[in-house]
């Protein structure tokens, strides 16, 4: 199966979620395949999926953008990473993975369960994966900042 067929519902749901809850349409860039050590982030919301496909779905932000997104999400000014920002980033990953699941079940009959989301904080981090995994990264532009949708699927 073409990996893009699986990744596209996640892209679609990310854009839909940002448009619905943040009133902003992020612009997707070119899909990258494989782990990339040059694409670092400061805060990551990640959620495990298990079923017909298994792996993780992660949303990776620079600090400033995570605060900006959380500010819009909660309708209050947030300038530093706090519990609200960490919760927002995890919840966004959760919403996007759940929405993509709905599309994948309907269109490709691919079903999976979602785990509870986790948030990782650390300046300039990358994510590591076990051998035998396929990694797909979709960069998104939001103003002058970039964040990443990163999907790791077990082969």
């Amino acid at each position: 199966m073409d990996v893009e067929e699986i990744v596209n519902p996640f892209k679609e749901k990310l854009i839909h979620t940002f448009q619905t809850m943040l009133d902003f349409k992020p612009v997707p860039g070119q899909i990258k395949y494989g782990k990339r050590d040059d694409m670092v982030s400061d805060i990551t919301g990640t959620i495990g999926i298990a079923g017909d496909i298994s792996g993780t779905v992660s949303l990776r932000f620079p600090r400033e953008l995570a605060c900006r997104v959380s500010s819009i999400f909660l309708n209050e000014e947030i300038t530093t990473i706090n519990h609200d920002v960490m919760d927002t980033v995890g919840e966004l990953a959760n919403i996007i993975a759940g929405g993509a699941k709905g599309i994948l079940v309907q269109t490709l009959n691919i079903d999976f369960k979602l785990a509870i989301p986790t948030t990782i904080l650390g300046d300039g981090h990358v994510l590591g994966y076990p051998a035998g995994s396929s990694v797909v990264i979709v960069p998104f532009s939001m103003g002058d900042s970039t964040f990443y949708l990163e999907i790791c699927l077990k082969d």
Binding site: G98, G99, K101, G102, V105
Partner: peptide, 8 residues
């Protein structure tokens, strides 16, 4: 009110 979007 959930992220679970599957018909089932």
């Amino acid at each position: 009110l959930t992220t679970e979007a599957g018909r089932e």
